[in-house]
């Protein structure tokens, strides 16, 4: 008794769906393989605010930085600048808005150096699009924070 199964239309449709799903999943990784071509060194500045001294103590030039939710590699810390954290305060007596320093809290500007692909008006570091105004949750070996990209030097 032979159990030769004929391939029906349903089987063909299922195979096509699986091929499409595999192609859809593999495509981002395949694009990443071409990453080493046409890369250019850029330095961009990331700002995190309302952090304490314990966070600043963890920062060191040369440490790697990653996107903490997607695990994309964002580059290496080149330099960082610490400023007092200031918040807006409405001075209703004078009718003005003032920036007042909050003691014990800081705003840190971190210069990150990375290899980027610049194509079609997009600056990509790993799979992360780098633009001023982009929100990023970051992590390093012993620190994590979140903030915005505020400057790009290329």
């Amino acid at each position: 008794m032979s159990f030769k199964k004929k391939v029906g239309i349903i089987d063909i449709l299922i195979v096509l769906i699986i091929i499409g799903a595999v192609f859809y999943l593999v495509k981002p990784f395949k694009e990443n393989v071409n990453f080493t071509k046409n890369t250019k060194k850029i330095t961009y500045t990331f700002e995190t605010i309302e952090v304490g001294e314990e966070f600043i103590d963890q920062l060191k030039a040369g440490k790697d930085v990653y996107n903490s939710s997607k695990n994309y590699y964002l580059g290496k810390i080149k330099n960082f600048t610490v400023n007092p954290y200031r918040e807006e305060f409405e001075n209703m007596e004078k009718g003005i808005i003032e920036l007042v320093e909050i003691p014990g809290l800081y705003s840190v500007l971190i210069d990150i150096e990375a290899d980027a692909v610049i194509e079609n008006d997009v600056i990509m570091v790993d799979r992360e699009e780098i633009r001023v105004g982009s929100y990023l949750p970051i992590k390093g070996k012993s620190f994590a924070s979140y903030g915005y990209i505020v400057a790009i030097e290329r």
Partner: peptide
Amino acid sequence: YVPLANNKGEGILARSPE
């Protein structure tokens, strides 16, 4: 400039710093 109410209850436009 952003709207702000001063202590007299008047609505004014205050310079948003920086």
